[in-house]
């Protein structure tokens, strides 16, 4: 299943915001095509920044990123959009357009393939309605096709976001805290859904999770990130409680006495400041 081809290759990637806010500091990372990886780590560790680098929303301050063998630095304009089209992202929340109907949010997955004119026409009369319906069916809410997106629950909206990725049909699926705003049962359902999609179609999957339990239960490779660097990159059975404790110790530079240290391996989501 796991081919030897590299999906991602990162070399000494560093990202600095402003003058001196270091978000990532020397990250080396290889992810093979079709691999499924979970990222864990305290808030502010740099997970979201890493995702934004992986989906070409940001560029590294220094260091290099290759996606599918292609040096990201050289990509601009249309080529950059083409590269982005091959990467699908599911966010924590707020990533859909609330005022649009579900069908348009799902079909937005096609924007990378459609011309501007065709996308505009689709807002009046949806192209590929069948495709949208199929994607929604796959995530379990086919009846919501024509509802307004802001009328759905948080969990349903996350399913719509996943349906959009299905329509986009990328080579990589990135999910940045996809389940931290839904309840625990729904959380594992959604994680399983993402894993099924990856398994069925051979897509590379990278998910960041607040819940360490979910990461350890569903992924064969778990990467711990702390203070902008990779703390460990192991299979779950090799990850000890002590390692997790250290990963979340004093999470964040500013509050050294948080409750996060006390229960590192519980299913309770770690509080996030964002």
């Amino acid at each position: 299943m796991s081919s030897l081809k590299r999906q991602y290759h990162l070399e000494q990637v560093r990202k600095v915001f402003g003058r001196r806010q270091v978000a990532l500091d020397g990250v080396d990372l290889n992810i093979r095509q079709g691999e499924r990886v979970a990222l864990i780590g305290p808030s502010g560790a740099g997970k979201t920044t890493l995702f934004r680098l992986l989906n070409c929303t940001l560029r590294p301050t220094s260091g290099k990123i290759w996606i599918d063998g292609e040096d990201v630095e050289t990509l601009h304009g249309k080529q950059l959009r083409q590269a982005r089209r091959r990467i699908g992202t599911v966010y924590q929340q707020h990533n859909l357009i609330p005022r649009l109907k579900v069908i348009h949010n799902v079909l937005a997955g096609q924007l990378g393939r459609w011309s501007t004119l065709r996308s505009l026409a689709s807002l009046a009369k949806p192209h590929d309605g069948e495709l949208a319906h199929k994607a929604l069916d796959q995530v379990g809410i086919p009846e919501k096709l024509f509802d307004r997106t802001d009328e759905l629950s948080g969990g349903q909206q996350q399913r719509v976001a996943i349906a959009r990725v299905l329509v986009q049909d990328p080579e990589v699926v990135l999910a940045d805290e996809p389940v931290s705003s839904v309840d625990p049962t729904l959380a594992s359902t959604i994680v399983r859904l993402l894993i099924d999609i990856s398994r069925d179609t051979g897509k590379t999957l990278v998910v960041s999770l607040h819940s360490v339990d979910l990461a350890l239960a569903y992924f064969s490779r778990v990467i711990g990130i702390r203070n902008g660097t990779i703390a460990f990159d192991l299979s779950p059975e090799k990850i000890s409680d002590a390692m997790l404790e250290e990963l979340y110790a004093g999470s964040g530079r500013e509050d050294s006495n948080t409750e996060a240290t006390s229960e590192p391996a519980s299913s309770i989501a770690y509080p996030s400041i964002s």
């Binding site: 989906n55 070409c56 929303t57 959009r81 083409q82 982005r84 089209r85 091959r86 990467i87 699908g88 992202t89 966010y91 707020h94 990533n95 859909l96 357009i97 609330p98 937005a108 997955g109 924007l111 990378g112 393939r113 459609w114 501007t116 996308s119 976001a161 959009r164 990725v165 986009q168 990328p170």
Partner: peptide, 15 residues
């Protein structure tokens, strides 16, 4: 945030 999401799936500025 929704705009960032659209950009990340390959949409151009007008889209």
């Amino acid at each position: 945030r929704p705009l960032e999401a659209l950009q990340s799936l390959g949409a151009n500025k007008l889209q």
